[in-house]
Design a protein around this nucleic acid. Structure first.
Lengths: 250, 250
DNA sequence: CGTAAAAGGTGATGGGCATCACAGCGTGGT
DNA sequence: ACCACGCTGTGATGCCCATCACCTTTTACG
């Protein structure tokens, strides 16, 4: 649960403990193209590169815990992570799934308030870390970055609203699950003759924690979807027929 | 449902149709102290004052509708508004309650995406409007404003997460309602010898749309809370005993 | 002030889903 | 190879809450 490689900013291809390719330089990072740091000038990128530290984590590593004072900003260079919020009874909800290129802990840093959620990697991941102080100075000296930050926060907000709408408005758990799958399809889906395919490595328990349902109910509903030929699971891929699933989403 | 006064930027105390005091000048606005535009320089405020237009709306006025292309930023100078998202079945959820001083439509403007929710005043309200183009130019030329914007978005995001957590994690509707009341108490509550008092002018139906419950259930639960002496309603005020209510929130 | 519309109250009913319980299954570790 | 542990599938049970139905009270407004 601790970084397994020291922060490194100039090492070329070092060993890759978890089968990750190490990206040593933010300037050359492929994820730049897809993410909100994409339209930054080369100069700005170089400066960001100076103040960040990179670490590799295994799956299940905890980046920070709900309630902690923000230490800095985490940039998910590769891999995936989840943000969860817990109740005192020990249950938890998954607030967000972050993918490579996304920023984690941004809102708490900006608001100078304790982390509102716990961040945990779900796959081996390379994570760049920018200490709070340095990031705040970086922000003040680079006005364009503040706008990128605002854009990222807007994106997060809209996703959160989407989840709230799903949780409160869906008429049944069946509908919530169907809508979740459809959302995955529209975000990550690749369509071929077999239907639309999405990567599928979540446990039923975790899915339940996204839509606010119990593990058993998710199990039963997925079985039911399979029986009705709305979905098919092949290894770590899930094939679905969006049109028919949309009908089940009522 | 349309503005009842033409945009005015230099009129002194004009007629106040809905019993509102008209604030003609952003620089002098009392809400400045409490809100995220508070720490802006006088110069910046003056410039903002130049590009905004002010209008008065009755309760129930729709500022914009979900799906529309963002026309600009709304600043709630006085009064209250709600943001709602609908399902195709016609039901809707209340995503956020905005109070005087808050910004509405900000995230969609920043993300350049259609409004994700519908905004509607719940009381007579004075609203300043900043057209999209002018706001974007204002943003580019005033780096400190971008930071204020990011702070506001962070606040919105945390509130949204709080709602998602409430919706998904509470063990029962009873608990959701109790937690909602407690949240109101901690935000707006004033405590005296009678208990903690919060303003209370929402219909049961609307409360239901915040916590994802039916009107009848809210009615029954509130009755039950009254019977158990956890709350008391006096006119437009609700008194509660937070400690005991917290127990009901399980 | 008087009427219509909106808001609030309450019973009966039934379905959906959480919960408990336990049994296959796969996988990783030593 | 083996066991242990985490994930998955499925039945039985019971309760919470949405829904329908109908009524009363309050508010809005000419």
């Amino acid at each position: 649960m601790t970084p397994t490689s020291k922060p490194s900013s100039a090492v070329s291809n070092s060993a890759a403990p978890y089968g990750l390719k190490v990206v040593d330089n933010c300037v050359d990072c492929g994820a730049r193209q897809k993410t909100l740091f994409c339209r930054m000038s080369a100069d700005t990128m170089r400066e960001l590169n100076m103040i960040r530290q990179t670490a590799l984590y295994p799956a299940g590593a905890v980046l920070f815990v709900e309630g902690e004072t923000p230490r800095g900003l985490f940039v998910l260079c590769s891999g995936e992570a989840k943000l969860t919020a817990g109740s005192r009874q020990g249950e938890s909800i998954i607030l967000r799934l972050a993918e490579s290129g996304e920023l984690i802990g941004l809102s708490s840093l900006i608001a100078s308030s304790p982390y509102a959620a716990t961040a945990e990697t779900t796959t081996p991941a390379q994570v760049a870390f920018v200490p709070a102080r340095k990031f705040q100075r970086f922000l003040r000296t680079h006005p364009d970055v503040a706008l990128r930050v605002a854009e990222h926060l807007s994106m997060e907000l809209h996703k959160s609203w989407e989840q709230a709408r799903l949780l409160a408005l869906a008429p049944s758990t069946r509908s919530k699950l169907a809508q979740l799958l459809l959302e995955w399809a529209s975000e990550h889906g690749k369509t071929d003759e077999e239907g639309t395919c999405v990567p599928f490595h979540m446990t039923h328990e975790e899915i339940g924690r996204i839509i606010g349902a119990s593990r058993e109910t998710v199990s039963r509903l997925l079985s039911d979807f399979k029986r009705r030929r709305l979905i098919r699971v092949k290894g770590a891929s899930l094939y679905m027929v969006p049109e028919e699933l949309r009908i089940a989403a009522v």
